[in-house]
Design a protein around this nucleic acid. Sequence first.
RNA 1: GCUCCGAUAGUGUAGCACGGCCAAUCAUGCGAGACUCUCACUCUCGCGACUGGGGUUCAAAUCCCCAUCGGAGCACCA
Length: 504
Amino acid sequence: MSPDEWKRELEATAPELARELKTKKEPEKGLPELPLDGRSVVMRFAPNPNGPPTLGSARGMVVNSEYVKKYDGKFIIRFDDTDPQTKRPLLEAYQWYLEDCEWLGAKPHEVIIASDRIPLYYEFAEKLIQKDGAYVCFCEQEEFKNLKDAKRACPHREQGVEKNIGYWKKMLAGDYGEHEAVLRIKTDITHKDPAIRDWVAFRIIRTPHPRVGDKYVVWPLLDFESAIEDHLCETTHIIRGKDLRDSEERQKYIYRYMGWTYPKTLHWGRVKILEFGKLSTSGLKKAIAEGVYTGWDDPRVPTIRAIRRRGIQPEALRKYMLDLGMGETDISMSMDGIYAENRKLVEPMSNRYFFVWDPVELEIEHAPSVVSKPPLHPSDSRGVREIQVDGRVLVCRDDVARLEPGARLRLKDLYNIEVTCMEPLRARFIGADIDTVKREKLRIIHWAPVDGIAVRVLSPDGEFKGIGENGIRNELHRIVQFERFGFVRIDSINREVVAYFTHD
RNA sequence: GCUCCGAUAGUGUAGCACGGCCAAUCAUGCGAGACUCUCACUCUCGCGACUGGGGUUCAAAUCCCCAUCGGAGCACCA
């Protein structure tokens, strides 16, 4: 039977089903629904504050907080700062995370700092030992790995609850050095996935913690701390990178010992940003220390602080992050998408100005003394700029390169000229009417007054130096468009204007 | 080596749980044009994808198997 015949057959026997065939399934908008179990939604974003939030962090902030908004739940930011050594927290970063969250419209309802709650973790560790769900292990790393790979238990695994309690107390008392003892969670030493077998919950670190100093020498690892916190906070849904997929399986052993219910989990893939390549937090830290970048908000760096300084609007970033969805595939995203969103937001609000980079002076013979009055915005009538011109202006070297003697062109919003000499650059005035421009299809270039203000634009691709019109002085901290150049955010105005490039 | 996962246009995404509405959605990108005293914005038109091979079925992007490619974990990092 052909599909057509099949349809006719269905039409005859069950017309209501045939109708259903014709109605289009409407596509779901926005984030996919979360599986709910009647409890009110609690989600958390759990960064390690060992550097400022990056574009990658933005995804965690936006998506978690968006879900919480959607279900009217609770959003927690939790600082997983339990490693004073390898991933040492940066004291300022705690505040940076909070600032960037707020800026992104992802203000948390609660802030939890793991390093404040170490004694709490100790309590649960002891409970687990009592339940024979954890043991103190004295094996060397190599030694344990070999046993684990062979699915064999180490000698400490069955030493008994009493001994474990004793050893644990000694650990806490500081009786052991680093690497001498760890607390392991008893899972299944023959588990088919080697990543699950008797993992470490606590280790000894003598390096002082930036926040709490040398108060503790026994520090939990992520899986332990996270497992306990997610239960205490009544987290209902966890979104984590797929690199942490095994965490769920590991942590579930604790949940089983304690009789708790594990939150629902979702995973997403890695995000690579084309324009920034592979810049790790530690790599950036090093480059900044070496002076390659000026700081964590250098326009060449993929931190939220940096793109914020460049004038990216939080709504643009939010929308883009939401559009990325919840896929488990690795993503290589391009800043183009963010720029496109941003351009729509910024275009209507940005005043226009002339900025001439790499300027060349142009003298115009027989030019009248005039005041040019270009509009502040091309379509939205909000007034004009006023620029006095007396026969001399600055133009871009790029534009000059395309000229030759005899070339006729329009100086935008000023008048028409004909080039008479290239070096030095001279032209003669040939009128001011715009009709000539349209009729002859003259090239239109922008210009700047010779007494304009010095402008330096910092962009991901380097620096542009030139002269801009003086009206730019009124735009501190605002986003403007430099015509035929792009959008910039005016960062500071002193002897010169410093602008951060947003996008073109 | 052992364990997982994923694959739709250049990029991102919808569709896949329940096979026909899909010669496959939307956005961005790219190309052509209109508008414009900016290379911005807006508008019109166009380009461009179901990784491959088998199987099940009247019917497969959707279900099954194999292959390929990509990613992750097996840390006293997060």
